[in-house]
Write a protein that binds this DNA or RNA. Structure first.
Length: 578
RNA sequence: GGGGGUAUAGCUCAGCUGGAUAGAGCAACGGCCUUCUAAGCCGUGGGUCUCAGGUUCGAAUCCUGAUACUCCCGCCA
């Protein structure tokens, strides 16, 4: 595992522990805030000095004395009130860069302690077509899954689709009545959204229809074969819609990753029984609930989590508990990540707490809600069409590609139509995904076509353009290619900055793997592209000669490798030319 | 009523969990192409980090309170 920051943290923490006599002292190494403060800086001394009531600068001096000889630090100096500024050795950077430039050497090395990590993401409701509300979870989840796999973890994707519940009775009832009229259904099901609306309208308005629908729910739950067959037809159709969206988005979810709600149906009575045995269950107003001290409502009254309705039906809390048991037990997960809307935060707190108390998940199994905010329209309100309808995800993606096509046609009219289509399709999808991934997932964000499709700033088009420019240099080197083992020369500051940035790739990816914030990776890649552009302006590559040319070409190739790997982790396709 | 979240430049957003002079991009203004893709680079201006207190060597970050917006809280998922 290659991680400069981590190595420095280790060195400084040890030295600080030795100098202070506190075993758990933390060096607190971060990137230096300004170039003259070195490459990294350790901020931990001041906190410890405060604790010991000693002079921080003096303690920092002793830390430097305790710092052992090592391969990477050229110079460490005390600065300001007690910072330690760290300057890395050029020779060390060059040597590491040369190693990563070698043929077949991966930029990312597997984590020392590989874990089994279940990631629950996307999970649309199959009663309707995927809409913009499913975008963030699908994209963020897919990015995290790629990152975790790249770090060497055993990742199990779980697409917890909604395929059960009362609304399916309504849909089947509508389906069956159309079929009874001799309707082949294919055209009706092609647009699930209007199919759902039609069924809903009959449910609300048509006398007797609601009862028919409820009858179907009962038959479905009893396993009536004809009813199940109709249900299956509908589910297959709906899944086909989802898969079309996944294919367009370049999302890695497969059929094998499906673990629908209905999968847990047989387990639900057992879940209730286990809650009962654990003494967690009480009956309130006819419903079976779990009350916990941690969750209080008005006037200190405990807040219920309903696990079984008064009519005997189960709720999604029950299903989620069964899923936890399956993931922690059968799948033996070390971590379970739920990439789900932030509005469900209370629900997950409750479900996680119940799972702990009932023993569905051992303490060693980490349950994490990877929450994300809502996508807003340009008016700052939830994203809708002008008429107030929800926007189908597939329509949004197609519009993005169309807009990208217009821009590409305008900027590069000489390209043939096929190339423009190809570029537009990559840029259009990348723009939507990158706009989402580049923002801190916990806050709501405003969806804006102009910003995301702009070629300036932290956007997908800029990143793809930067990559295409880099590839253009490598294409032009022709037969005078640099050897893969070229020595790296760090004479210009731009060369050194570029290399250091490249070497920080793995530490960035690890932070994303641990904390689940894809925007950290986007920021890194954007900065990498920026550092490269400065190098590109200052350091001629193909016009340089001899060892310098080889060195620069090697840096270009390394940048390309890093950018390509990073964009792939985000789930973005790249282009050789734009 | 109770609980959660958010509030940073005109706009869209970062800010590595308490560090040095709060950063990007857009928009505005100015400079750089017969030279590896100018879809780029460099520079200038722009801030009471919502408000009021507190904690300490040091606060956008932690604590308390207030205001605004937003989400969640018994039989949908």
């Amino acid at each position: 595992m290659f991680n400069i920051k981590h190595t420095l943290e280790q060195l400084l923490s040890d030295a600080l522990a030795q100098a202070s006599g506190l075993a758990d002292a933390r060096g607190n190494v971060i990137y230096s805030t300004r170039p003259e403060f070195g490459d990294y800086q350790a901020n931990g001394v001041m906190a410890i000095a405060k604790q010991l009531k000693t002079n921080p600068r003096e303690l920092a001096g002793r830390v430097l004395e305790c710092l052992p000889e090592n391969a990477l630090i050229a110079r460490a100096e005390v600065a300001g009130p007690g910072f330690i500024n760290l300057f890395l050795k050029d020779a060390y950077l060059a040597q590491q860069g040369e190693e990563f430039a070698r043929e077949g050497v991966a930029l990312l090395q597997p984590s020392a302690s590989a874990q089994t990590i279940v990631v629950d993401y996307s999970s649309p409701n199959l009663a309707k077509e995927m809409h913009v509300g499913h975008l963030r979870g699908t994209i963020i989840g897919d990015c995290l899954v790629r990152v975790l796999e790249a770090c060497g973890h055993h990742v199990i994707r779980q697409n917890h689709v909604g395929d059960w519940g009362t609304q399916f009775g309504m849909l089947i009832a509508h389906m069956e009545s159309l079929r009874a009229q001799g309707d082949a259904l294919t055209t009706d099901l092609a647009d699930l959204e209007s199919f759902y609306r039609a069924a809903k309208q009959r449910f609300d308005d048509e006398p007797g229809f609601a009862d028919t629908a409820r009858g179907y729910v009962v038959r479905l739950q009893q396993g009536d074969p004809a009813c199940l067959a109709a249900w299956q037809t509908f589910i297959d159709e709906s899944l086909a819609h989802c898969e079309a969206v996944y294919a367009r988005l370049g999302v890695t979810l497969q059929r094998a990753d499906l673990k629908p709600e209905s999968f847990y149906n047989p387990e639900l009575p057992g879940i209730i029984a286990q809650l009962e045995r654990a003494g967690l269950l009480s009956v309130s107003e006819g419903a079976r609930c779990v009350f916990m001290e941690e969750f209080k409502g008005k006037e200190g009254a405990l807040l219920p989590t309903i696990v079984q309705k008064s009519d005997g039906g189960y709720l999604y809390a029950t299903t989620d508990l069964a899923a936890i048991q399956y993931r922690a037990g059968s799948l033996k997960a070390d971590r379970v990540l739920y990439v789900v809307d932030a509005r469900q935060s209370l629900h997950f707190q409750q479900v996680f707490a119940i799972a702990r108390k009932a023993g569905f998940a051992p303490a060693a199994c980490s349950l994490e809600h990877i929450a994300y905010g809502t996508m807003m329209g340009e008016d700052g309100k939830p994203f809708k069409t002008r008429s107030g309808d929800t926007v189908k995800l597939i329509d949004l993606l197609e519009e993005s590609v169309r807009r990208a096509h217009d821009i590409v046609s305008e900027k590069n009219p000489d390209l043939d139509e096929a190339s423009r289509q190809e570029i537009a399709s990559v840029v259009g999808i990348a723009a939507v995904k990158y706009a989402d991934l580049s923002k801190n997932r916990t806050s709501d964000y405003i969806f804006d076509w102009n910003t995301m499709l702009s070629f300036e700033g932290n956007t997908a088009p800029y990143m793809l353009y930067a990559y295409a420019r880099i590839m253009s240099i490598l294409r032009r080197q022709d037969d005078s290619a640099a050897p893969a083992n070229a020595a790296l020369l760090l004479e210009a500051t731009e060369e050194r900055s570029l290399l250091l940035k490249i070497l920080q790739f793995q530490e960035t990816v690890q932070v994303v793997a641990n904390e689940g914030y894809p925007n950290t990776l986007c920021t890194y890649l954007y900065e990498l592209a920026g550092v490269f552009m400065r190098f590109y302006e200052a350091c001629p590559v193909l016009k340089a000669e001899g060892a310098l040319r080889d060195s620069r070409l090697s840096l270009v190739a390394l940048t390309a490798k890093t950018l390509n790997t990073g964009l792939d982790l985000l789930g973005l396709k790249t282009l050789q030319q734009m």
